[in-house]
Design a binder for these strands. Structure first.
Lengths: 264, 264
DNA sequence: GCCCTGGTCG
DNA sequence: CGACCAGGGC
């Protein structure tokens, strides 16, 4: 048994107590964080180590972005890709080195949000997002081991992954071009979307609600966070859950944690 | 019986729950706030009205300074002086219009801090502080009714009003020039310093501790907040207390409330 | 909306 | 140290 969580925490320093609470209540073996928004030197390593998460791979930067994978089972950092080649900290890859999960690779990624306008010409950030996905797609070809790819993908691929499919067709995160580009990444390695494997369409299944306005009343969510298993790993996934309650905590992240359990 | 509190709250929006807690626990009839740090439109009027403090005189500005006097006994705003003539919101004067305290005037003031260097030439803010005090001194001559003058004076007049008299002689808030200038204001109307009337020198008696460094461990406080009664009002003051516990609350103001009870 | 960076202020 | 502001990001 091995359980892995992913959570875009939107500042790990501000929400370290919420991380600790989630770890106490959900008890995953491994936690992948995105948007830690700090440098490695500022990462709350001790607070997490005190809870047993002594194995840590932190790829941070000042102020923005940043990812970290912490674990109570041994791991070692194996990669730290910069698919944009611009110095942003959006990926860290680890390998579990002992126990049932030995050899499992966990890729933790924060895909660019892509700006407001879904047009390469008008909005360079949208192009960067697509380029990022295409580079990940080429990288996918090279993988040869059981791998879990998790994080904030900033794309809600299915109609039922958003509260209003038609309205969001022109909104970055749900445009046909993004969905198609993400689909190529998925197909490049036969990735299995565990969120929809365990909670099949058309069931409502969101991981993010804007801070703005009436997200709670209207349930205007999107499924932007994902856990994808390589074809050789997917059969071992035994449960998968979205921990929606954290979105109702005080001063929450706008994203919620996802957790998968594996029988390994 | 009438009780009046004064508290430099250092952002009333951020600390409205602490204000409510203090009001519940101390139950003053009137509360004078300084450094509300908001415009009148942003003042948490409803939260205070809900607790019975429905009579309010708010003199705010954007971001800095600002004073407000709220009460559960009827009052009317009578003055709103700008002794510096620069648009800063540092004073509001009210008159109680009913009940035992009818006719009592309460002047709520936030005297300028005065900058870092205690020299008019090198630091214009120090001059502005002295000018502010001198204009208040001239204003004091004109008063003819029982009056309570309260607020953050930003001066600790006595040796025992600071944790280290000698060290602070050259620190703005305790320089001989400030103490002398404040003394002239006091003498201009025969104001009675209730803090020292009820807690005589040389007893330790602080109302402010810096946010910086080890204020709690070292008790490096100063008495910057004051309640002064006009000679005709002072005999009615029956008790006076410093509510030090608020400084140990979570995310506190750097100042504590002072409360005087009057037998009226 | 909320969190970052930096600035000013006390 | 911790308020505020403005500007940038998502």
């Amino acid at each position: 048994m091995l359980s892995v969580a992913t959570w875009n925490i939107n500042s790990v320093r501000l929400r370290i107590e919420q991380v600790q609470r989630m770890l106490r209540e959900q008890s995953p073996d491994v936690l992948c964080l995105q948007e830690i928004k700090c440098q490695e030197s500022q990462f709350p390593a001790q607070a997490l180590a005190d809870m047993g998460y002594i194995h840590q791979a932190v790829h941070g930067q000042k102020g923005y972005h940043g990812v970290a994978t912490v674990s109570r089972v041994p791991l070692r950092e194996i990669t730290r890709f910069d698919w944009q080649d611009n110095g942003e900290a959006r990926h860290v890859g680890v390998e579990l080195t002992e126990g049932e999960g030995k050899g499992l690779v966990i890729e933790n990624v924060y895909i660019p949000a892509g700006g407001d306008i879904p047009d390469r010409e008008l909005n360079p950030k949208f192009g960067q997002k697509l380029d990022f996905l295409e580079r990940m797609t080429r990288w996918s070809d090279t993988l040869g081991r059981p791998t879990l790819l998790v994080g904030d993908f900033n794309i809600a691929p299915l109609e039922c992954d958003v509260y209003d499919h038609k309205a969001l067709l022109k909104v970055v995160s749900h445009t046909p071009l993004e969905v198609e580009t993400l689909g190529k990444l998925r197909d490049a390695h036969g990735w299995v979307d565990l969120g929809r494997h365990f909670i099949p369409a058309p069931e409502r299944n969101y991981s993010w609600w804007s801070y703005r306005s009436y997200w709670r009343q209207k349930d205007h969510g999107r499924r932007l966070d994902h856990m994808w298993a390589s074809p050789d790993l997917a059969p071992q996934a035994s449960t998968h859950r979205f921990v929606e309650e954290t979105r109702r905590w005080e001063q929450p992240s706008d994203h919620i944690p996802l957790i998968t359990e594996f029988s390994l």
